[in-house]
Simulated assay, not measured.
Amino acid sequence: MRSLVVDAGNTRIKIAAYLFSELYDLHVFPFGEREKWQDFLKNAVYDTAIVSSVLNDRQTAELMSCVEDGLLLSENTPVPVTVEYDSRRTLGKDRLANAVAAYEKSRTNALVVDIGTCIKFDFVTSEGIFRGGSISPGLQMRFSAMHEFTGNLPLLKNKVPTKLIGNSTVNSMTSGVMNGAKYEIEGMINAYLEEFKDLVIFVTGGDADKLDLSALAPLNYDEHLTINGLYSILQKQNKQ
């Protein structure tokens, strides 16, 4: 069976193709390149499809018009984990997909660290119960906030590791963002490790490669974690 997974984020659209549970093709388009991703979707060949979108209603409708008979992931879509969250309607679809993928891969207590627009931690138990987690600003959001909310600090985009002590304003800002995020993530992971036994940790997200977390316990890097989680959700619908 040929399956299509569409993950529409804040700035990019990922389109993945699966054949008998194997990911064999992946394309990433900036959302602004509408003609390219619309043409790609309209010409895609598939039997089933799922769409996850964090876009507004108008943009999501535009996207869905290109995916014939596609399932739009919503708070009412059955998923392979039990969701213990105050409001599933407000739960990010990427967070839910990450939790599903982590549980499917580990079948034990699992923690997902998604380093992207925001830095998100999500925890799922060995019984397949999604408990929630935390959200904090991502790397670029931190750089942008310092520029936007001060009068003189420049807007930086240099997401590169740096020394602890910055010897210039640019280096000090870079240290504050990059080292601050690194130690924040390390501290959060260690807190989870203290509380939960047999914890498997997954790391994903567009900026996952920008931080050196090698000093921590074994980490499982998976750039396709969200996509694979969406595919697992689609498979659950196909089996019903």
Rank of each mutant, 00 (worst) to 15 (best):
F20Y: 14
S168Q: 10
K93S: 14
L63D: 08
T82C: 08
F130Q: 01
S214V: 11
G116D: 14
V67K: 03
T90M: 06
R12C: 04
T226Q: 09
R89H: 13
D209N: 15
V160R: 14
V112T: 13
R2T: 15
P137D: 10
V51R: 10
G116K: 06
K163L: 11
E62G: 00
V200N: 14
R34E: 15
M173F: 00
R89M: 14
N167V: 11
E223Y: 07
Q59S: 14
R34I: 07
R131P: 00
G205D: 07
N109M: 12
I227K: 02
I185V: 14
Y24G: 02
I189H: 06
I189E: 07
A102C: 05
I13H: 02
T204V: 02
S136W: 04
L211T: 03
Y46P: 12
S214Q: 06
G138P: 08
G9A: 06
Q235R: 13
L91H: 02
S144K: 15
Y183N: 08
G229C: 10
G166A: 06
D114C: 11
S172E: 12
M64H: 07
N152M: 13
T60D: 06
G128R: 02
E75M: 13
T82W: 01
T11E: 02
D198M: 00
L219W: 03
Q240T: 04
N43H: 15
D57C: 03
S232G: 07
C118H: 10
Y103Q: 10
I13E: 12
E186D: 09
D222K: 00
S232H: 14
R2C: 13
M146E: 10
G151T: 14
L73T: 01
A49L: 12
V177G: 03
N190D: 12
L55A: 14
V100G: 05
Y85S: 09
K93M: 11
Y221G: 09
Q59G: 00
Y231F: 11
G32V: 12
Q140G: 00
K36A: 15
P154S: 09
G9Q: 01
L26M: 05
E35H: 14
D39M: 09
L111P: 04
H224E: 15
G187K: 01
